[in-house]
């Protein structure tokens, strides 16, 4: 009994540690004071100003555009590559897996500066496109790593059965193989999306003047003073993530039932 209480208390404490800063940001987003220290009344002012701030809205747009595009492209490349890797001989598989692990195991900062070096060497214009290339590069391996286990557990005769029943290889893939590995593809895509949303390092090094993502914007603001608008933005983001989480949970429940 006592043991159970200690466990509960411990878990509660850890969760409190995790969520305290987030709740604080949410609280301050309603604070009618420019100075974050003291509470001077409830307001929705920052939410209104948030959407009037061109640079923040632009950063938000860039962030989501890059996240969606890079996740989409990474999912397509990653799924195709996973299928190819799955069918390879062990020796080639090893080589490809090592290459795949490279961006996963390499520190973000090294990915960032090395891509910067590449883009500069290729005389590419730094900006939205280079950030996107960077994100696809570090996202694709995660999709591959999410899809491969599903392929491993896939009954190898399924595809042959489809072919036997008269499906073309394309039909066999889209009607039989893809639906079977879909959970892995979706997981990989979601992972890529969130990693891209969360990224700072790669964007920071591969961006050019004037192109901001949310992370870069926040970073530069911490140098010059953070506006409470950012608190409002955090709140909206957190609520968005939370509702997505609740949605996924309830969907899972429905599937189980």
């Amino acid at each position: 009994m006592v043991k159970k209480l200690i466990k509960r208390g411990y878990a509660l404490l850890v969760y409190l540690f995790l969520y305290l800063p987030i709740f604080l940001l949410i609280l301050y987003s309603f604070n009618d004071s420019k100075y974050r220290g003291s509470w001077s009344g409830f307001t929705l002012r920052w939410y209104k100003e948030l959407f009037k701030d061109r640079t923040i809205v632009a950063a938000l747009y860039n962030t989501f555009a890059i996240a969606i595009l890079s996740a989409l492209i990474a999912t397509i490349i990653g799924t195709i590559s996973a299928i190819a890797i799955h069918k390879m001989s062990p020796r080639w598989k090893m080589t490809f897996m090592n290459v795949t692990y490279l961006p996963v195991m390499n520190p973000d900062i090294v990915i960032g500066i090395s891509l910067l070096a590449l883009f500069v060497a290729l005389k590419m214009h730094l900006g939205f496109f280079t950030i996107l290339l960077g994100h696809i590069t570090f996202n694709t391996p995660y999709v591959i790593l999410a899809v491969l286990p599903k392929l491993k557990h896939l009954n190898p005769y399924l595809e042959e059965a489809a072919l036997d029943l008269g499906a073309t290889p394309m039909q066999a893939f889209f009607k039989v193989v893809l639906p079977e590995i879909m959970p892995g593809v979706v997981t990989g895509g979601l992972l890529a999306f969130t990693l891209s949303l969360d990224d700072f390092m790669v964007s920071f090094f591969t961006t050019g003047s004037g192109v901001n993502t949310l992370s870069i914007k926040v970073y530069s603001m911490t140098k010059l003073g953070v506006s409470p608008k950012i608190n409002a933005l955090s709140t909206l983001l957190f609520i968005g993530v939370l509702s997505l989480f609740v949605l996924l949970q309830s969907r899972e429940k429905n599937i189980k039932e």
Binding site: P21, L25, T194, T222, S234, L237
Partner: peptide
């Protein structure tokens, strides 16, 4: 879940928490 909110924002939240006037 906290991982899904932005890394910079999470770190910034601690700046707010730990400030002299925090």
């Amino acid at each position: 879940l906290p991982l899904w909110t932005n890394f910079l924002l999470r770190t910034y939240a601690w700046m707010v928490l730990l400030r002299d006037q925090g």
